[in-house]
């Protein structure tokens, strides 16, 4: 019998300090971006968004000369508040994203392993994916109006991470020392990022929906509520993000059970973490079904997706701190 004692912890302290400073820089940068987005939401002009219309109907530009197009269902007009500061905010967010990427890389290099082995690192990685999903939505679907709604939870999470979850970088317990961590945790982190954007789009949707209802009843709406993007737009975006996140989540849970089979000798054991991942999965599946069921679209489906998001948050925070299970890395 030999007890090998790790002679020194394999952590590069210089790199590790760089990565800790990057977290603080990231928070400052995101806070600036948030300010820009909030300013845009409050003081911008509510305009139609270009490029969200599917077909430039009636536009007889050169190529479609002589082509008469008729769309049965007119698309809802997509409106959102715009201001130059919004563009600045987008750029600043992109900078924050780069910092965040650098932070994760340096932390990984410092400890010489995949940089997600504890709650602190998960939170940072989830924020990275949330911001990535937002940037994707901003460029692909012109959804930069979501900036404030994504950055508020991101900043909250980062604050919680730095204040309460911080742990020094270092090696992980043997059970986490596997390439499955790269597969399983990455998939779940990315899914969580997408669900987070969906969650904030959904909350915005519910507010925008009630604003729209009041507007259609002839009430005068003012303030930020009046400048919210069109509910249809938000609803569609929330759905898209879940469509991205759901298969990632499914895959992540399955990868996790393959890993559990390898590490713990069973692929499914109803550990609290497994139970809540399953519940989250079922609720988001119910959301997808609801979207496909007459009479369940719109607000009802939105509430289901928020229940799903609540389960997700509970799985992340509640389960780690309230229950003891095999997934204890808190």
């Amino acid at each position: 019998m030999v007890h090998v004692l790790a002679a020194e912890t394999a952590v590069d302290t210089g790199l590790s300090a760089v990565s800790d400073n990057l977290v603080l820089a990231m928070i400052v940068v995101y806070a600036v971006a948030l300010f820009c987005f909030v300013f845009e939401a409050a003081y911008g002009r509510r305009e139609s968004l270009k490029g969200t219309r599917l077909v430039a109907v009636g536009a007889s530009e050169g190529e479609s000369e002589g082509l008469t197009v008729n769309l049965r269902a007119r698309e809802p007009e997509a409106k959102a508040s715009r201001h130059v500061l919004g563009r600045v905010g987008l750029g600043v967010t992109a900078l924050g994203f780069v910092l965040s990427l650098a932070q994760i890389v340096t932390r990984g290099l410092a400890a010489d392993r995949w940089p997600w082995g504890n709650m602190f690192e998960f939170v940072i990685a989830i924020c990275l994916c949330g911001v990535a999903a937002f940037l994707f939505a901003a460029f692909r679907y012109k959804a930069h109006y979501l900036g404030a709604f994504v950055l508020v939870p991101v900043l909250l999470l980062l604050g919680i991470a730095v204040r309460w979850l911080y742990s020094e970088s270092g090696p992980v317990v043997p059970a986490l020392d596997s390439y499955w961590i790269a597969i399983h945790v990455s998939a779940l982190i990315m899914a969580t990022g997408a669900f987070m954007v969906s969650g904030s789009a959904t909350i915005t949707y519910l507010v925008a929906h009630s604003t729209e209802t009041r507007r259609s009843l002839g009430e005068k709406v003012s303030g930020i509520a009046a400048k919210l993007p069109s509910p249809e737009l938000l609803d569609r975006l929330a759905h898209r993000m879940i469509v991205l996140g759901f298969p990632l989540w499914t895959f992540g849970v399955i990868a996790g059970s393959i890993w559990a089979d390898e590490a713990w000798g069973r692929f499914w054991g109803w550990d609290p973490k497994e139970v809540w991942s399953f519940i989250t999965w079922v609720v988001y599946a119910a959301y997808l079904h609801a979207r496909a069921t007459a009479g369940w679209q719109g607000k009802k489906a939105a509430w289901i997706s928020l229940v799903g998001f609540a389960c997700l948050l509970f799985n992340f925070f509640g389960v780690n701190y309230l229950f003891s299970g095999l997934h204890s890395y808190a």
Binding site: A7, E8, T9, G170
Partner: peptide, 10 residues
């Protein structure tokens, strides 16, 4: 064989 981290928080 088992090995343990000797120093630091962990």
């Amino acid at each position: 064989d088992a090995s343990f981290i000797e120093e630091g928080d962990l």
